[in-house]
Amino acid sequence: MTQQLPVLKEKKVKTNTSRKLLFILLILFVVLLAVLFFRSSMSKISEIHITGNQLIPNQQLVEKSGLHIGDQFFGTSKGTIRERLLENKAVQDVKIELKFPGVISISVQEFSTVAYQMSPTDGKITGLLSNGTTLPLPKDHILVEKPILTNWKAGDALLGKLCKQLGEIPDELLTDISEIMPDPSKSYPDRIKMYTRSQFEVLTTISLMKDKVEYLSNVIETQQPGLITMLTADTYRPFDNTPWGTDLEKDTTQ
């Protein structure tokens, strides 16, 4: 009787060493690619686009953002850029978009321009924003139909309140107002005098202006040029029919 010999199993070739070597080579290859990429122009900021600004110069916004052409694109923080730009008192909101490769687009929303102010010394015109901020106008800026503020002292607290009120009034109700000047009295410390392009003269206060402006618009559309008083009571007197020394004249000096 013959005895069957057991079949010997073939020894498996160990491949752990070769796999480790392949993995190390792969890591080195990836690192090399990363180094080459971050040293190439594709990983750097190549363009910075600024849109939406009307009074703030582009260069001023770029400098404030801290961005430079050639900086690392992937090291750019949108939150940091936004915080820097919002430090400018004229900036209301900022939106930032990163576009690979290397393009950064910044959309700036300024506080709305509500009026202009002319310097009594050199005649230069500055823009006043709805939050009271004053900015010089660019040379190519086109003046729109906004009131001109005259005879206001620098640092007057009422000037900021006036700008805020103007910012809350629809543009269509302000287009006819050409000039606003302070005209305080004992009874109304924040009283102002306004002139319109349709040749009306208006007396009101900063605090009442927002609530009274619709009445002003209605009178201008339906009446001849005259004096409109919008204080505790609203009155209208055409210039031709206003006798000298009437109660209306007394009202304007209180």
Results as ranks from 00 to 15, higher is better:
Asp93Ala: 05
Lys193Val: 12
Val103Ile: 15
Ser18Glu: 14
His49Met: 11
Leu85Val: 08
Ile106Leu: 00
Glu179Tyr: 01
Val62Asp: 03
Val7Asp: 10
Gln54Val: 00
Leu28Cys: 00
Thr51Tyr: 12
Arg39Val: 06
Lys250Ile: 02
Glu214Ser: 13
Tyr236Pro: 01
Leu227Ala: 10
Lys99Ala: 12
Val202Phe: 02
Leu28Lys: 01
Thr232Phe: 11
Glu201Arg: 13
Glu110Tyr: 04
Ile177Cys: 02
Tyr188Met: 14
Thr51Cys: 01
Leu85Met: 03
Phe23Asp: 07
Lys99Gly: 01
Glu87Asn: 14
Lys161Asn: 06
Gln109Met: 08
Val94Ile: 07
Ser119Cys: 11
Arg39Cys: 13
Ile228Arg: 12
Phe23Lys: 13
Glu172Tyr: 14
Val31Asn: 04
His141Gly: 07
Cys163Trp: 03
Asp251Thr: 09
Ser130Glu: 05
Asn241Cys: 00
Asp183Arg: 11
Ser77Phe: 12
Gln199Leu: 11
Lys161Met: 07
Pro120Thr: 04
Leu248Arg: 05
Ala154Arg: 08
Glu47Cys: 01
Ile220Val: 08
Pro189Phe: 02
Met1Glu: 04
Thr205Ser: 04
Glu168Val: 10
Leu22Gly: 02
Gln59Thr: 13
Arg19Ala: 13
Leu55Pro: 01
Pro120Asp: 07
Ala34Met: 13
His49Glu: 13
Ala90Met: 00
Gln165Trp: 08
Pro170Lys: 09
Asn241Gln: 14
Thr175Gly: 04
Lys64Ser: 07
Asp93Lys: 07
Glu47Pro: 02
Lys95Tyr: 10
Ile106Gly: 03
